[in-house]
């Protein structure tokens, strides 16, 4: 499943393992001499197993003994790859975004960038100023990856680096991505970004075990995208953006359970009824992408449209 690591990483690992080997050898030797038995050397081995860097559930990098991973409830990179590609059986994640409640607070963007170690100009979720033209009123629209059921991006990926799992999430494996950017070109929602140069805090995350469900560490020359916070869902928690919103914009849940939970009020309501009662729609339905993200129209707005002190849309004809 997992492909080979890039050369520099490999060589880095090799040298540490060689050092470990020497250390083990010395300790083993010392153990044999001091304890005069096999038992001593065995203990020395056990305490000096391969050290690896992993991400804790709080997102902090820690160095742990590989053999201790399971005790602290963490997985190796290989295990994360297998589980990450599989997805969570029986789930179909959906998001509902209530446009009437968004006031461009951007806490969703900030928490997302923080969680996925993104640079300020990199957005997995982006709050757009939308304008339907004519005399219609402008509004704010948070735009994550739509996690389409007919995804144009995974269709074109030549190496299965971006793929759709059984719970509906479209993930990206940046240990496999070759950086051809075909998926970026194919995505009609501009939901994908690329690591054009070294990622943020490159040194800090060097050699850290890659978590495919968080896409951290980010890697130069690979694509990154919104993951519906697959790592949080595995823990039964709402996505980063959903829980960060102060205005009750996001509902998130499992369509198989027909329930979505508001990230702000924590209220849980029937999913289909929410869609029906509010005339929900999906983005660019004419493209047939079948998104998993639904939008509730910007009706009964809680906030006026204000941007940089202006209440009107300045760049009415965007770019």
């Amino acid at each position: 499943m997992k492909e080979k690591k890039n050369p520099e990483k490999k060589s880095g690992k090799k040298s540490t393992s060689r050092r470990d080997f020497l250390k083990k050898g010395l300790l083993a030797g010392a153990g044999t001499v001091l304890a005069g038995g096999v038992v001593g050397s065995f203990n020395a081995f056990a305490q000096n197993g391969e050290k690896i860097k992993v991400l804790g559930s709080d997102g902090k990098v820690m160095t742990v003994d590989k053999s201790h991973l399971q005790e602290i409830g963490l997985k190796t990179e290989e295990e994360m790859q297998v589980a990450g590609r599989e997805g969570i059986p029986g789930k179909k994640w959906v998001m509902v975004i209530d446009l009437g409640k968004c006031k461009n607070a951007r806490l969703c963007m900030a928490s997302c960038q923080h969680a996925h170690e993104l640079k300020p100009e990199q957005h997995h979720i982006n709050v757009l100023r939308m304008d339907r033209g004519g005399d219609t009123a402008p509004f704010f629209m948070p735009k994550p990856c739509q996690h389409c059921d007919n995804p144009p991006c995974t269709k074109v990926c030549p190496v299965d680096a971006t793929f759709k799992r059984q719970d509906g999430i479209v993930l990206i494996d940046n240990e496999r991505c070759i950086g051809c950017r075909f998926c970026i070109a194919a995505c009609p929602y501009s939901a994908r970004i690329f690591n054009w140069s070294d990622p943020k805090d490159k040194e800090k995350y060097e050699d850290v075990e890659y978590n495919i469900e968080l896409n951290v560490p980010q890697k130069k020359g690979t694509v990154s995208k919104c993951l519906f916070s697959a790592d949080r869902l595995r823990e039964g928690k709402l996505p980063y953006c959903v829980s960060a919103c102060p205005n009750g914009v996001y509902w998130f849940g499992d369509a198989n359970e027909d329930a979505v939970t508001n990230g702000t009020t924590k209220e849980t309501v029937p999913f289909k009824k929410l869609l029906k009662d509010n005339a929900a729609y999906t983005l660019l339905p004419e493209l047939g992408t079948k998104p998993s993200v639904y939008y509730l129209p910007e009706k009964d707005r809680l906030f006026p449209f204000e941007y940089e002190g202006k209440s009107d849309l300045e760049d009415k004809h965007h770019s």
Binding site: K91, G236, K237, L238, F252, G253, D254, E257, A259, T261, K266, E267, T268, V269, P270
Partner: peptide, 10 residues
């Protein structure tokens, strides 16, 4: 309520 993934649905 019915227990759901992320909360209890009335």
């Amino acid at each position: 309520f019915i227990k759901r993934m992320f909360g209890n649905m009335q």
